[in-house]
Nucleic acid binder design. Structure first.
Lengths: 215, 215
DNA sequence: GACATCATCGGTCGAAGGTCGTATGCACGG
DNA sequence: CCGTGCATACGACCTTCGACCGATGATGTC
């Protein structure tokens, strides 16, 4: 279940927002000013933040800036709420780095649609991040090893298979060469890469093969 | 230099936008309708897209949906441009997953501020992504191996060191045990993990130790 | 043609890795 | 009290690895 943090100084407004979100199946947390909001965010790790602009203690802009400086909230959607709805006000909020801007009084459908849209967007990024963040070396690019460590094409081919846990005999069979040749190539690899074991070489190779992903 | 794609059917508007952005030091590409815009996006790989809503061929919503379905543009900021600036129109655009919404006629300062804000936000995410995307297994978490492969605590400790390229003798010294014991634990690890070489086990272990990063 | 580089193949030898069986001490639960 | 699981340890045996020695041929380049 997604958790939403509501930072809003008016008690009735806070309750209404929380209620609307809870009826939609969201988990909610609330804070009545900026300072409390930042604390609540840190302890509750919400998936989305709804924040009023004008508040005592710390205003919405300050809250946004504080959260964006925190690694943990870099990807957390942040939606401003405010009664002031003139163009310059909206622009100020968005230019601060907010993800959306809702005008009070908040219409139920607008709120839910905005929340869902922002959560969907964040989730999409999160998913792509998870896919690429783990362990996925590109074993189809021996050329990466070649350029990274000054290996010859054949040497790097041998190495990509070794990095996949193959034995010398396996590699020999796969590449259609003698195991002696595999040994020779590997020996050269060790020298060029400055390592002394097949395991260390494997580790370095995996690191090289993993370092080239794009968002 | 950041590249910005402008999708807008009115020629003068298109020129004005491009000029404003070029004066600010941006690289620009333009397209006069949705279909052409999607093509241009794919070939130019812009860092941000400015897109009119009402266009012949394919409207802005369709362009946004098409780009969001493409892996390459998951993180690319998308800003709608439109003359229709009533509340429901803005909400529709944002709920489609746009990152911002500018009303025509576009004020220079608004445009540049919005572009900079969105680029900064995207860059922040990109940076965090790059940091975590490479090769960085967490060697301080033997418990991950334990639960993932049904290993005992001691076995997983041995394995994390093996995964770091240590020899049996090294591991024995590090963990204060006999090399015979290391061999025994490793043998059990191989069985439980369904591999037959220290190298393959290392590979599986690295995969397990790399899979738990958060955005 | 001389020379360098790359890829291929061969041998020997010692060190490291891996499998087998066996055994002890310890802790936990029935 | 006894069985089970865990960690520890030893010895014997075989396989694999990696280093050091060598050699051939196919490329290019100057």
């Amino acid at each position: 279940m997604k958790k939403i943090l509501i930072i809003e100084d008016q008690a009735t407004m806070r309750r209404n927002l929380a209620l609307m979100l809870q009826m939609e199946g969201f988990d909610t947390a609330t804070a009545e000013n900026g300072r409390a909001g930042i604390e609540k965010a840190r302890e509750q790790q919400p998936d989305l933040v709804l924040c009023d602009v004008m508040m005592p203690e710390l205003d919405g802009y300050a809250v946004l800036r504080a959260l964006r400086e925190d690694e943990a909230f870099a990807n957390t959607p942040f939606i401003f709420l405010t009664a002031r709805t003139d163009r310059t006000d909206v622009r100020t909020g968005m230019n601060f780095g907010a993800d959306d801007y809702l005008a009070k009084p908040v219409v139920r459908d607008d709120l839910l649609a905005a929340v869902h849209a922002r959560l969907a967007r964040a989730e999409m990024l999160q998913q792509r991040f998870a896919e690429s963040s783990g362990f996925n070396p590109d074993f189809s690019r021996p050329d990466l090893l070649q350029h990274a460590h000054g290996l010859t094409p054949r040497e790097s081919e041998v190495l990509v298979w070794v990095a996949q846990g193959k034995s010398n005999a396996d590699v020999a069979a796969i590449l259609g060469m003698s195991d002696k040749t595999v040994k020779h190539h590997l020996g050269v690899c060790f020298q060029k890469m400055g390592v002394e074991s097949r395991n260390a070489a494997s580790l370095v190779a995996l690191e090289t093969l993993s370092g080239h992903r794009r968002l």
